[in-house]
Computed example of a mutant assay.
Amino acid sequence: MTNQHEATPPDPKKTSVADGVWTSQIAPKIVRFKDLARCGDEIWIEHQGMLYRLRETRQGKLILTK
């Protein structure tokens, strides 16, 4: 049985994994949230001079706020 929060590549025949990142012709980058937020349940992202907060809820959903 697989974990429902586990990232699954779109086409196993055309994918590879290195350092926890899936790469394929379909999805160039898939990064697991738990790998990004190693020390908690949120990360801060800077994009074009703006800060965004990406956090995981208790229900396992992600919320992005400005």
Rank of each mutant, 00 (worst) to 15 (best):
R38S: 10
M1K: 08
Q48T: 08
D41A: 09
Q48I: 00
I63W: 06
K14F: 00
L62T: 09
P10A: 11
G60V: 06
T2A: 07
E56H: 05
R55M: 12
W44R: 07
T8N: 02
E56F: 07
E42M: 07
T2I: 13
A27W: 05
Q59C: 11
Q25H: 03
W44S: 12
P9T: 05
G49T: 13
P12Q: 10
Y52V: 13
S24P: 00
W22K: 02
V21K: 00
L62W: 01
H5T: 13
L51K: 11
P10D: 11
P10L: 10
E42N: 09
I30W: 02
A37H: 02
R32W: 13
Y52C: 10
L62G: 10
A7M: 06
Y52K: 08
R53M: 10
L51Y: 04
Q25M: 02
I43W: 14
E46S: 07
E46N: 05
D35H: 01
I30M: 03
G20F: 03
G49F: 10
T2V: 08
P28Y: 12
G49I: 08
T23D: 00
T57F: 12
N3R: 05
L62M: 12
R58L: 15
T8Q: 14
Y52S: 13
R38P: 06
R55P: 10
T2F: 09
M1D: 13
G40V: 11
H47M: 02
C39P: 02
I26W: 06
T2R: 11
R55L: 12
V31L: 02
